[in-house]
Design a protein around this nucleic acid. Structure first.
Lengths: 214, 214
DNA sequence: CCCTGTTTTAAACGCTTGTTTAAAATTGCT
DNA sequence: AGCAATTTTAAACAAGCGTTTAAAACAGGG
């Protein structure tokens, strides 16, 4: 009896599934397509992973993990908040340059309306667990950060990181630019976003805080 | 012979198809599902629209049209640029509150990797045709607008409008808030986004322009 | 009231889907 | 080498897919 096989087969399937699922979504691809991408039989996919759904769950949760990892690493440092956010923006653009399809993948599959939804409440708990939200509130009370809702801070950060990658195809068509041009554009855009967000969230000097709080 | 029928059948199918396609995507639903949603036979769907793909094309292009309409209406006015952008943000949040799934729908289906892609170059040409991009360049040359790339301006506007709707499910889970709470959040967020973007793009007083231009 | 064209239906088409089966190939061990 | 467990294969399964067919139901004008 073999206890620990080469495992390259199982891994090859996982690797292929990751590529195919992320590129086309759960309902946009077939089991046979994944098998072919891994260079093997359909039955093997179900031999190692019980079903298409079971395999998908593994891939999806791994993607979520990857996505959260860099975020958590930044938030768990002991730098001042402004530096943390700067680092977050930097790391996020780095990550998304490498895996530009992951946000679309996560958002689409989370919003899938076919009853086969995966529960992620536990996954997101660990963001709150870093204490980043509390840190924001402290800085806000101290008058060093603009007093806007924490949810809006999250929205500002995520919008300006993720959309440029999710909506790449649209933007490229609107402005008629090539893939290479857009890649350069994103490098520039990261700087703009950082400058704008940090400037807005941490207004130096006499700027009025509490602008939108009632 | 009947020249102009009630037409309610054709319209009912289109209405049902719109709902189903936008909610689940092209590959996420079936012809029979659309037929059932419209309360009729599968064959009828293909009697009025030749195929699932043909029906999809109609729905997709209508969604694109709806999406662009409010944008064009704003851009074709003769208000000063800053007012135009304020109006754009307002109208866009209004539109997206009503049809929150359209951006995801457009972005996903545009990026679909199965060779059945719809060409939209013509559609996007009409944005450029409003002269909004030229107007930005004029304002930049006159020193009234921050000198950043036009593509980045588009990115900033679209990111902060569309992501809050596309990523709603994620944000709600991260902060554990309800649908109603999030709806209120979005009203507040629109104000924040407007203030931040206008403040950044049209820096009053002594602020240094040309910050990221080399 | 039948006749012509249109709209709707039920049933079938061939094909692909996810999944299972059972036999073949491979492996590790003694 | 021989045996038992594991891995891989080809083939089949029912179910569902998009699409087509042919007949039924319906409409209005003579």
């Amino acid at each position: 009896m073999k206890l620990k096989t080469d495992s390259s087969t199982e891994d090859k399937i996982k690797e292929a599934a990751k590529q195919v699922f992320i590129a086309k979504g759960f309902s946009g691809c077939t089991s046979r397509e994944i098998a072919k991408a891994a260079g093997m039989n359909v039955a093997l996919v179900n031999y190692y992973f019980r079903s298409k759904s079971a395999l998908f769950k593994i891939i999806f949760e791994a993607a979520m993990g990857d996505f959260l990892l860099s975020m958590l690493e930044v938030f768990n440092t002991s730098l001042p908040l402004e530096e943390k956010l700067r680092n977050y923006l930097d790391r996020e653009y780095q990550f998304l340059t490498k895996y530009p399809e992951i946000p679309s993948f996560i958002i689409n599959e989370m919003g899938r309306k076919d009853g086969a939804n995966i529960d992620n409440t536990a996954v997101f708990k660990c963001i709150e667990h870093t204490g980043i939200f509390e840190e924001c509130k402290i800085e806000q009370k101290a008058g060093r950060m603009r007093e806007i809702d924490i949810t809006s801070i999250t929205l500002l950060m995520m919008s300006n990181c993720q959309f440029p990658f999710m909506g790449a195809a649209v933007i490229k068509q609107v402005h008629g630019i090539s893939d290479e041009q857009y890649e350069k554009q994103l490098v520039q855009h990261k700087q703009i976003v950082t400058e704008m967000l940090i400037g807005y969230l941490f207004p130096k000097s006499q700027t009025i805080l509490q602008t939108t709080k009632k």
